[in-house]
Structures are given as structure tokens and as C-alpha cells.
Simulated assay, not measured.
Amino acid sequence: MLKYRIITALILIPIVIAALFLLPPVGFAVVTIVVCMLAAWEWGQFAGFKSRTQRVWLAILCGFLLAAMMLSLPAYQQSVHLIQISGSLWLSLAWWIAAFILVVLYPGSAAAWRNSRPLKLIFGLLTIVPFFWGMLSLRLYGYAENHYNGAWWLLYVMLLVWGADSGAYMFGKLFGKHKLAPKVSPGKTWEGLIGGLLTSALISWLFGRYVPLNVAPATLLICSVIATLASVLGDLTESMFKREAGIKDSGNLIPGHGGIMDRIDSLTAAVPVFACLMLLVY
């Protein structure tokens, strides 16, 4: 399993970086919509859809919704303050605060939504739609001045998340004794969380030193810490929904890694939260 994970990562990471820097905004948006549709397909399991046809339609409807929202933007203006974008990012902030409460109170909190398919679909929309707008708004940030400015920002957030995940895994294996959320994800520990934060802090320092992000160090630190914590929450939230659905992986599209949601669960929280803090709050 580890062998497949490493091989897949070595293939996917260069593809992701190439997509960030080489695709034009429209192409990047289309690729992100496809990723969101695949995520919606997998979310169908969390919502209780057993039929493949139902899940296909869920993915198609998600794609149409995102495309319609994107086409509703004025052609001459792509400001993050447009309601389609800012509204989605603010909703994301509210949703992840609510998700934190659901995770902390689990399994008791599941009584409110366990048997409600509409609620689980709403949770899916609140996860996937703001993720799309977070990706797009960061990619378009400063695009008129420098086509690669937003790509650097997105790469930064992704490295933060990947670093937190890797650091948490290594520190958890070496020092993990105290469970972080045993009822949701028994493998995660407080020691792993601290290790993930330290790894992300190192990445943030290196990136801020050698890449022209043009942001105040204090602002970058605050946004980075909150985004890293959000990434852990995204992982725990998906684990909670998988536990309720009785599945180990969200899918099997990526060899050795499970499904699309298994790979982007942390990013679905970190990207829109970072975008909201960086572009709307600061």
C-alpha cells in the first residue's frame, strides 16, 4: 500500500503543480469543476445514495451549479467581493465552525443529521462549493499584474496542508500517545497535531523567505495557522461522515490513496478558509 501511495504521489504532485502554473484561468476552473464533480460523486455515499445512477446525477448537478455560478459573474469583473464568491467563502467559515462542533460532540451530534439526506447534501454543498471558489479566487489573485501570483498562493496552501499531514503522520507514529478525536478518527493524536503544526510553520517560514508573497509576516502567520487547523478539521469531518456511512475510503479512484475526497478533504477546509481570511478579512 505504501509503495502505491508513493508512486501515485510522485505522479500526481507534478501534474497538480503544472496545472497551477500552466493552465489559463478558464482551463483551471474547468479542471477544478471536474474535481468537484468527482467529490460530489463520492459524497453521494455519505448522503446515503446507494445507486450509481443517483450519484452520477449528483455529480452532474454539482457541475451545472458551479458552471452556472461562474457564468453569472460579470465578464469584466472577477472581484472576490462579488456575492457568488464572497458569499461562498463566508458560508465556508460558518460551516467549518459548525463542523467543529459536530466533530467535538460526535457521536451525539449525529442524531440531528444521521437520518436526514437533505442535511447531508447541504453539508456536501457547503464543503464542495466554497472549495471551488477558494481555489478560483486564490488562483486569480493578482492575475492582472502577474499571471503566476495566485498559483504561488495556491501552492503555498497546498504545501501547508501536505506538510501538516506528513508531519502529523511522522510525529504521531514516533510520539503519539494521546488521542485527538478517538470517536471520529482513532489514529490521530495530539502529538501528531503538534508535529503537523511545526512542519507547516517551517514551510511557512521557508516560503515567506524565498517566494515573493508580498504579505505582512503577522498576517501570513495568522492565516497559515488557522488554515492548517482547518485542514485537520476537514480530515476529521470527512472521517466522521465515512464512519456514519460505514466505509473506509470515499472511493478507489487514486491507487493507494482511496478516493478524491480522501485526498482533498483537508484542502476543502483549508483553501476557502485561507482565501476568506486573506482576501476578505485582511
Rank of each mutant, 00 (worst) to 15 (best):
L105W: 14
F132H: 03
A9L: 07
T268Q: 11
L61Q: 04
F64E: 07
L93R: 04
I15F: 10
F123I: 09
D165H: 07
I7T: 14
A270V: 09
G256P: 06
W133P: 09
Q77W: 10
I85K: 03
L206D: 04
L65D: 04
L279S: 13
L140T: 08
W152P: 12
C276I: 01
M240E: 08
N115T: 10
Y169R: 02
K3T: 09
S51A: 06
T199F: 05
G258S: 02
G163S: 00
L180W: 15
G208C: 00
E238W: 07
P272I: 12
L193C: 03
F241Y: 06
Y282F: 11
G187S: 14
P107Q: 09
R243Y: 05
G27C: 12
F207S: 01
T32N: 04
S116N: 02
V281G: 01
W96V: 02
K248H: 01
T53F: 10
V232I: 07
D165Y: 04
P130S: 03
S224T: 15
E244W: 10
K173V: 06
V30N: 10
V161Y: 08
W162A: 15
S92P: 05
R114E: 13
N149L: 07
L73Q: 15
Q77Y: 13
I15A: 08
P130I: 04
D235L: 06
T237L: 06
R55S: 04
D249V: 00
M240N: 07
S88G: 05
V16T: 04
C36Q: 05
V104G: 04
A40K: 03
V281P: 01
A68E: 09
L202M: 07
L38P: 08
G63C: 04
M135S: 03
F207L: 00
G163D: 05
